[in-house]
Design a protein around this nucleic acid. Structure first.
Lengths: 147, 147
DNA sequence: CTGGCTGCAAATCTTTTGCATCCTG
DNA sequence: CAGGATGCAAAAGATTTGCAGCCAG
């Protein structure tokens, strides 16, 4: 269970565990939907009516800074978050913006000369295309404006 | 000259060429800075004081839909645009968010079974790290909040 | 107890939209 | 001269910030 590990790490760093944060951590645990801050807010607010966006944003930023979650630039309009911090890549549906994980390693080393003056610390591959739902539907499901 | 080609294509599609749009196209022509809408707005406004953001956003969206420019999700906070529509990848500085082009091809094919139900139309690799400026400076240059 | 956390509100930044007017083709 | 384009203002969406009060450690 990743959640317990997260909580332990969380406390180990000296952060306080509040019920609000626990709810956020629980929601993120094992979540494969790459939710946005708003997604998270809407979800946790159900059981936590007093929850505020500020708390969600604060918590996400804290988790990100401590390396417990990853911030994704997959969506042009908003940040999305991934609780899976192991290096992996993504399949992104151009139509509905759903995101699937790709757990594979690729050899994408950039030759010395091409990266002169630039220290490469990691990489991330976005594969873009159409998920099965959107592929079979020339209508609906769309959350963006490809055209 | 890419600009002339852009203008020709622009007209060929049946779009009207206005001085404002020409200014935007000129600014984008050969631009390697991967500017945001605001960057473009600020620049063209200098010579075109009446220029409005709406015009910039309208034009960028039109260009994108017609495939004359690419919209990049490189920056978590805003869209950035690339007039170079040939497939290529990017080196992204985590500190100052500057972006360098990488004109290389990589073999990143995803095995059939791994992409079942997902039609892959393309890919884009983000290499993240530190540019030379930021590498040598533990201060300044920062446009974001890595920590 | 105390510093970090919460939540509300206000502010900021990016992008979109409505609409009257303008101007390219 | 028609329909697309412009520009202004207002709205919407995403995120940040200020601050008083709260609570986990």
């Amino acid at each position: 269970m990743v959640l317990k590990k997260m909580i332990d790490r969380y406390k180990a760093i000296g952060l306080k565990m509040t019920p609000q944060r626990l709810a956020i951590l629980e929601y993120l645990d094992g979540n494969r939907e790459h939710p946005s801050a708003e997604d998270i807010y809407r979800h946790v607010k159900k059981r936590f009516p007093t929850m505020s966006r500020a708390t969600v944003y604060n918590t996400l930023e804290t988790l990100r800074k401590r390396g417990l979650i990853m911030e994704l630039s997959i969506d042009p309009m908003k940040k999305r978050y991934d609780p899976n911090i192991e290096p992996h890549h993504h399949l992104i549906c151009l139509r509905c913006r759903n995101v699937l994980d790709v757990f594979m390693e690729f050899d994408v080393s950039v030759p010395e000369e091409a990266r002169k003056d630039f220290v490469i610390l990691g990489n991330h591959i976005e594969f873009y295309g159409l998920c099965s739902k959107c592929r079979n539907a020339s209508h609906g499901e769309a959350r963006n404006k490809e055209a």
